[in-house]
Computed example of a mutant assay.
Amino acid sequence: MSPQTGDPRRRAEAVVREPAGRLLQLRPEETAGLRGCGHLRRGQSERTGRPPRPGTGRGTVGRGVHRPRRAADRRGAAGRHRRPMTSAIFFAVDGTLCSHTADRETVVERGLESVLGPADPELVEIYLDTLDERRTALDPEAEWAGADAVAAATDADVDPEELVDALREAEIETTTVPEAARSALSALAETDHLGILTNGSRGRQAAKLAAHDLADYFETIVTAPEAGVAKPDPEIYEYAREQVDADEYVMVGDDYEGDVVAPREAGFVPVRYEDEGPSFWRALDAIV
């Protein structure tokens, strides 16, 4: 059986990597004891490879990662029943949940053309320059500012709201979501708190999630404009932690600085999404 067609459980460890090249060990012989997204090998010590001592509650978070535990868990009084560990798992949207089939210049050109007819390349540039400037300023209305700039630069009578809707629709049409992603998210949502953590605006990202039937899996959406800080600043992860009460926090994303380094500094367990090689979502679906 070739590596491309084999059991995805056997290919899991080739999918989820930490930046230094060390794999988060998701080997098939260990998957029976995994709960949630497979970010921890529960019941085995990373340092020794042996099961933890009874009552320690130690898992195998990567070195240097702090996993907060509540005082009740630390006391470990004899005869006390441990409550189940709770996990909050946050996902990036663009490049992780949604794959793009066209670059953003093409998306904007198609969106503008649906309203204005053949789009002048200068209008595309005006929109993107304004959008980037306003996003850097953490403006939640960045899309509207871009649409206003385009409307001001054309002689046509243009409704900025119509432009925003057309641009969002053009983006939705050029994004895809693997079916295995829905299956994995459905399984995770049964036991864990799922969230979105994004630098995009709430309206734009919520529109994509709804269009791809993903919205119901997520209980929390954290956006950079609302947090007042953007990835890769670790402070956005501190803000996310304040929104959800959990024992451990996980970030799944494709960007090395924003989705791996920054969350690790904030005490999250990072899981890096890679769209090359074996299917991340099929492997994750097999594990959960």
Rank of each mutant, 00 (worst) to 15 (best):
G203M: 11
L167M: 12
P160W: 11
E190K: 06
Q205M: 05
G203R: 14
P160A: 14
S201W: 00
D192F: 01
T191V: 08
L185E: 09
T176N: 10
E171P: 03
T198M: 04
A166T: 02
A184T: 10
E190F: 02
R168F: 06
A181C: 13
G195R: 03
E161S: 15
I196S: 05
T176P: 04
A187N: 07
N199M: 02
V164E: 05
G203N: 09
E171A: 14
G203A: 15
A189N: 12
A180Y: 03
L188Y: 13
G200H: 03
E173S: 13
G195H: 08
R182C: 10
E190N: 09
L167E: 06
A180R: 10
G203T: 12
H193S: 11
E171H: 13
A180W: 04
A189P: 09
S201H: 01
G200L: 00
A184R: 03
T191Y: 00
G200S: 04
A180S: 15
I172W: 10
A181P: 03
L197Y: 03
V177E: 10
E179I: 06
S201E: 12
L197C: 06
S183I: 11
E190P: 09
G203Y: 08
V164I: 13
L167Y: 06
E173C: 12
A180K: 02
R202T: 04
V164T: 12
E173P: 03
T191N: 07
I172E: 14
N199F: 00
E190Y: 03
E169C: 01
Q205Y: 01
G200Y: 00
L163S: 07
E179K: 09
E190D: 15
E162W: 01
T191S: 11
A187F: 00
E179S: 06
R182Q: 12
L197N: 01
R182T: 15
E169L: 04
V177W: 02
L163C: 11
L163A: 10
E169R: 03
R168V: 04
L194F: 02
P178L: 13
Q205L: 05
A170Y: 04
P178Q: 13
R182A: 14
T191D: 11
A170N: 08
R204A: 11
G195N: 04
A166W: 06
A189D: 13
G200W: 00
T198P: 05
G200K: 00
H193E: 10
R202E: 04
E190G: 07
G200E: 08
S201T: 11
V164N: 08
T175V: 11
N199K: 00
G200V: 01
D165I: 08
L194A: 05
R182E: 13
R182M: 05
T176S: 14
T191M: 00
G195T: 10
L188Q: 07
R168W: 09
E173T: 14
E171R: 14
A184C: 08
V177K: 05
A189W: 07
A184V: 07
A181F: 05
L167F: 02
L197W: 01
A170H: 03
L197A: 01
T174N: 13
A170C: 11
D165C: 09
